[in-house]
Amino acid sequence: MRPDTWRMFVDPTILRFFGSGLMETISLSLAAIVLSFVIALVFAFGRLSKRPWIRWPSIAYIEGIRALPVLLLIVYFGIKGSALFRPVFGPEFELSRYWAGVLGLSLYTSAVLAEIIRAGIVSLPRGQTEASRALGLSHAQSMRHIILPQALRLMVPAMMAQLTTIIKDTSLVGTIGVFELVRQGRVVYTQFFNPIEVFLFVAAIYFVICFALSQASRRLEVGYTPKAARAKIREVQLRDQAA
């Protein structure tokens, strides 16, 4: 480690370079969590459906995608994303690498979130559904007005925890050529030959964001989520938070 290699981290040009990577990382994670939440809602209800022709494909999607590495999905969309959407958007369509990354991340996260949402819905007392049905609400109405608002509130801490996982996973999108934080770091260190300093710096940025988020999620969880729901959600997360 050379002493002069640390000085670059106060250089505004270098900092701006890292800043643009950080912006890309944050925008990737936010896009991915929004998109994956929408997909997750569909599959969570699909899995809870009484009709087998809806239930079984949903189970296959959730369990299949959850069992795959995220990197595989990202690399696949990075290479084949454009060809995949050409039948829909016309022959000239090019999927940008950014959206290929978002798609890969969201697909994986949607399977995890679907399980978390399902755990939230299942852990609500049955009396809630029964009472709302007895009051004359249809199944869809009782879901929309009674069950879902409560289940979603239970899940806020879990979703925040999942956001930290997404932020960490955005580092993988750098491998298909999106210039997020890690990729910017690689550019810098191949210029200055200081991988130690650069990766420590990058790790520190990730640490500050993810630590703050996970601490906040833990704080919220304690006052927020009943024990039964917490145990169920924990179980889902265990398999995926490490990813």
Binding site: T164, K168, D169, S171, L172, G174, V182, R186, P195, I196, F199, L200, V202, A203, Y206, F207, C210, F211, S214
Partner: peptide
């Protein structure tokens, strides 16, 4: 180790 990406650790 939980709050930094595995990829950064591997690259390091």
């Amino acid at each position: 180790f939980r709050n930094t990406p595995l990829l950064v650790q591997l690259f390091f």
